[in-house]
Design a protein around this nucleic acid. Structure first.
Length: 414
RNA sequence: CGGACUGUAGUAUAACGGUAGUAUGCGUGCUUUGGGAGCACGCGGCCUGGGUUCAACUCCCAGCAGUCCGACCA
C-alpha cells in the first residue's frame, strides 16, 4: 500500500480524552478512531492488525476441530428469558422497537443463540462432540468503560462452544485441546512469554474457570503467579487457593494483568434451560455437556500495544504487524525514486506485505517519526546515501545494515 | 451506580467579567531533505440550556460528554 494514498494521518499530539497508552498510540498512529467512550472504528492500518489476529485465532480454532459460523447481534427477548439473563445480566443492552414494541437484546454473548441452534442438529451421541465458533461483535452495557481498547461497550470476540456427551469428554477437550489452542494463539500473537494460565472464579458447576492473563501494568486484574509452572491464581480466589495449583508453591509473585482469554466449563448450565439433550447408545436421554472459550480481539490488540511500545511508538510483533515491511524513500533523485519503486514492486511480487512511504512532500524526519509510531517490524530506507543498496532495520533494534535488493527480497520473502 | 476532575479552531493548549492568543494542522508560494525543517501570507474556535450581571468563554445551577478512582464485570 502506498502511504501517499492512505486517507488516515498520524498525529503528534496525545489525544486529551485518552489516558491509556494503547488508545493514545493507536489513535496517534491512525489505527483506530474513537466514536464514543468504549467504541472505536478500525481504520485501514488497525483493520489489518485485526485481521492478522483474527486469522491466527481462526487457524487455531479450526486446528482443534472448530467449525466457523456467524450468529446475529440482534436477538429475541424470549431466549434471554429462558436463561434468566434478560433481567439477570445487568450489562445486557435491551431495547424496544419503536414500531412493533417488541423487546430485543444486543448480543453480549451467544449461548442464547447457539444452544437453540444446536438443538436443531444434535440428537444423538453420534452427533457429539461438536465444536462451533464465531468471531463476532459483542455489546455490553458496561457501567464504566476504561483503558482504551481494554474494556469497551462494543468489541469483537471469538467465542467457541464445545458440546460433549459427558464431563469426561469435556475435561479432555478443555484441558488438552482448548487450553493448548489458546496457548498457541497467544504465543503466535507475540505475548506467549507474558501470558499465564490462571485459575479464577466463575466456574458454573466446576470450582474454577480459567483465564489467560498477560502481565501488564495497564491490567485491571491482579494475579499471583508461579514462575516455575507458568500458572497463576486470580486475586479473586486467592483466599481459597493461595498456592500454585500444580506444584503447591506458596511463594507466588503478585502482578497486574490483562485478561485476554477466558474458558469455562458450562456443563449443563445452558443445555438444561433449552432442553438440549441427546440419545445415548443405551437409549437413555441425557443432557449435552458444554464448554465455552472466549478471546476478546480488541482487548488483545490493546494488550499487545501496552506491552510492546517505546517512547516513539508501537513495536508490533511481526505476526500481527499491519505490514511486514515499511519502505521509506527519502530521495528526490529520480534514479533513487525509481529504485524504491522497483523494490516496492518486487516485494509485492514476492508477496511481502509492504507499506511504501512514497510521499514526496514529507521530510526524512517526518517519515522516520511516523515509521516508529506505526511500528512495522522491518524498516527499509532508500536515500541518496544508500546508493544501490537498501538500509534495513528492525523496529526494536538500534542498528541497521545495508543489503542488496536481491538479498533483501530473499531475506524478507521467506 | 457513587466520587473526583475536565469540556476553548481538525488536534494540543493559553488568558480574561468588556475585540479569544500560541503551537500544530489545512491552503498558497518560495526555500529545504537522514529524525515530525524554515520563511511569508491565508483558513479555522469558547459543549448545550438556564441564572447572576450594563456585559458571561470566564461566576452559579442543570444537562450532556470525556477521563480517572471505587463498586460491578454472567
Amino acid at each position: 500500500m502506498r502511504q501517499s494514498l492512505l486517507f488516515t494521518k498520524t498525529r503528534k499530539e496525545i489525544p486529551k480524552d485518552e489516558d491509556s497508552i494503547n488508545a493514545q498510540l493507536l489513535i496517534r498512529a491512525g489505527f483506530v478512531d474513537k466514536v464514543m467512550a468504549g467504541v472505536y472504528t478500525f481504520l485501514p492500518l488497525g483493520l489489518r492488525v485485526f485481521k492478522k489476529i483474527e486469522n491466527i485465532i481462526r487457524e487455531e480454532m479450526v486446528a482443534i476441530g472448530g467449525q466457523e459460523i456467524l450468529m446475529p447481534s440482534l436477538q429475541p427477548k424470549e431466549n434471554w428469558e429462558k436463561t434468566g439473563r434478560w433481567e439477570g445480566l445487568d450489562n445486557l443492552f435491551r431495547f424496544t422497537s419503536h414500531y412493533s414494541k417488541i423487546d430485543y437484546a444486543l448480543g453480549a454473548t451467544h449461548e442464547e443463540i447457539i444452544v437453540p441452534l444446536t438443538k436443531k442438529f444434535i440428537f444423538s451421541y453420534k452427533d457429539l462432540p461438536a465444536y462451533i465458533f464465531q468471531i463476532q461483535n459483542k455489546f455490553r452495557d458496561e457501567k464504566r468503560v476504561k483503558s482504551g481498547l481494554l474494556r469497551g461497550r462494543e468489541f469483537f470476540m471469538k467465542d467457541f462452544y464445545s458440546f460433549h456427551k459427558d464431563e469426561k469428554d469435556l475435561d479432555l477437550f478443555y484441558f488438552k485441546k482448548g487450553k493448548k489452542a489458546y496457548e498457541n494463539v497467544f504465543k503466535r500473537a507475540g505475548i506467549g512469554s507474558s501470558t499465564y494460565f490462571t485459575f479464577a472464579s466463575g466456574g458454573t458447576f466446576s470450582k474454577y474457570s480459567h483465564e489467560f492473563q498477560t502481565i501488564s501494568s495497564a491490567g485491571e486484574d491482579t494475579i499471583f503467579l508461579c514462575e516455575k509452572c507458568k500458572i497463576a491464581v486470580n486475586k479473586e480466589i486467592i483466599s481459597e487457593q493461595n498456592s500454585c495449583p500444580d506444584c503447591g508453591n506458596k511463594n507466588l509473585k503478585e502482578e497486574k494483568a490483562v485478561e485476554v482469554g477466558n474458558i469455562f466449563q458450562l456443563k449443563t448450565k445452558y443445555s438444561i434451560p433449552f432442553d438440549l439433550k441427546y440419545r445415548d447408545q443405551d437409549g437413555a436421554e441425557k443432557d449435552v455437556i458444554m464448554g465455552c472459550y472466549g478471546i476478546g480481539l480488541n482487548r488483545l490488540i490493546g494488550a499487545i500495544v501496552e506491552i510492546f511500545h517505546d517512547k516513539n511508538g508501537i513495536i508490533w510483533p511481526e505476526a500481527v504487524a499491519p505490514f511486514k515491511v515499511h519502505l521509506l524513500n527519502l530521495s528526490k533523485d529520480k534514479k533513487n525514486r525509481d529504485f524504491a519503486e522497483k523494490i516496492y514492486k518486487d516485494l509485492q511480487i514476492s508477496e511481502v506485505e509492504v507499506l511504501f512511504d512514497d510521499r514526496v512532500d514529507a521530510t526524512p524526519g517526518e517519515k522516520f517519526a511516523e515509521a516508529d509510531l506505526i511500528g512495522i517490524t522491518y524498516r527499509l530506507v532508500v536515500s541518496d546515501k544508500t546508493g544501490s543498496k537498501v538500509e534495513i532495520k528492525r523496529r526494536n533494534s538500534k542498528t541497521s545494515s545495508l543489503v542488496s535488493k536481491k538479498d533483501l527480497i530473499t531475506k524478507l520473502s521467506k
